[in-house]
Design a protein around this nucleic acid. Sequence first.
DNA 1: AGCACGCCGACT
DNA 2: GTCGGCGTGCTC
Length: 602
Amino acid sequence: MRRRIARVVFNLGVDKEFDYYISRGKVDVGFRVWVEFNHKRRVGLVTKVTSTSSVRNLKPILEAIDNFPTISKEHLKFAKLLKKNYPYSLGELLFMMIPPPLRRKKRIPSTDSLSSAFPHRGRKEKNICFIRGKNFLERVKLYRKKIEEKLKEGSVILCLPTFEYVEKVKELLSNFFSKELIILHSYQRSKEFLSSWVKLKRGNKLILGMRATLFYYPLNLSCIILEEEASPYYFHPEKPYYHLFDIAYLLSKFKNIDFILGGDYPTLNTFKMIKEGKISLKGRERKLKHVEVVRAKTFNYYKHKTIVNPLLKELLRKHLEEKKRILILYSRKGFASFIKCLKCGYIYMCPKCFTPLRYSLREKRGECLWCSYKENLGSLCKICNSGYITTSGVGIERLAYYLRQSFPEVEFSYSEEINHLVNLATYSILDSSSLIGKDIDVAFLLGSDYFLSRIDFETTLRLYIYLKRLAGLVKEKVYVLSENLEHYLWELVNKPLEAFYTKEVHLRKEARLPPYQHLAKITVRGKNRNRLLEKANQLYNLLKNSSLEVFGPVQEFPFRLRGKFYYSIIAKSKSKLTLGKKVKEVVEVFPKGSYKIAVVLR
DNA sequence: AGCACGCCGACT
DNA sequence: GTCGGCGTGCTC
């Protein structure tokens, strides 16, 4: 019996396979094919070759793009496993494993077949381990040993949060693994990406990349390393939404290989798994410098004509006189959060998102935080044409402005380059590697009350990690100015990790939040506000009927983005798997139309 | 996902 | 009358 029919999937949200007959040439599972689908020609991927089809009048495969598979049978199996956990089609998931240029009709620029090295599967019990190290320089040294050992068995992928980490690790490891080192990430040009992708399939390699890299894993993968596992960069913030930890965890289980997590402070989930004996722990906590929490009493800004707290001024003056190297961290970007007219009270808004525009002093214009909208401003109000425009709210640029007023002789440098005596930066600099190896004597963390007031259950843990990183960096002391000394973080910030994490885990358990309960945020968007709310309520009822704990719908922030409204519903469940499955079922039966749904699990 | 088709309310 | 938003169904 000759098998003449190919089952094909596309990079579309249709979770269905389509049959085409094979007219000529070699076509097999994993081949990219050029076919006509719905009056258009596009690239499909063969998931099966059979002899029968329930559909009559099949269309032919116009062309097999290559004469070898782009996707292996193992990758196909892994994509099917992912499909069980995520509300995406098999096609969408498989195309994540294909380099972007090859998602179009382009031939693979290689001479011989791409048949990869022998698939690797761990024999004994796989090992999940959290390696604790002060900073990434120290951890890379620890990974080096592990990489050397695992390269004997197969390839190793080292996932890094950002491009700058990849560059730094490349510098650090290229001497040790010059033959094995391969860089693969989506910042590369397509030619470079493709040549790396072809190379990583031959022999035992060390692959450096970011969150998308893991989807291109070679069959002989023997170990996954996730450096700085608590980094927010491992969350993919657009469709297809995923967290790299989950993908890496599933892949390591699927292949039964080692999974190494690295970081200075773990996520709460990892901490919980360490406590449960599911993850082993290497490395100890070291003594850090003291974080001093100072009561920043509220004072009258207008009377004092400054926003610089007198206490901060006093502390700064003292350390400036001692010629200390100072770092000041602040949580809000830009100059001001609002631009308004003093006469009519009009607040400048983004016309697409209906959120206040932020004022950027550097650019001298209003900017939307949520989309790319920019607006140049005159000195008179654009509505009443008479009132003066002022700004309110304190961003880091305004803070710098007032600090210069208070200390005219000091240069408050505000940039990513920390080379001056006094430096200003936003908290996010602590998620990068820019501060490693810099000499700082004293650090001030400002704006913590605002940071903690955000409606997000992760903020306390984030701030704890930021403060601990600062405490590990400075030679002398970290100051935090807060008006809210009752916050539980302040009494735990100088205690060992164990104390804070135990408390936080306890609170999350009480509040039934991750990692004890999992959350799915289901967001609907559409142009008609009232109808959208109806839709959101329908969705709410469907979720409720599938015996999930459901909350909402609530307006998203921003409520209106790029001309569309957004409502969110939160569903809760103890098991991430059941949650994912149930939400997926509901989303699938929900009528498709002009109201689009997005699902984020955590 | 994209697209065609058909329904219905709004508006010169 | 006809324009456009919206639901439905279909793609091998």
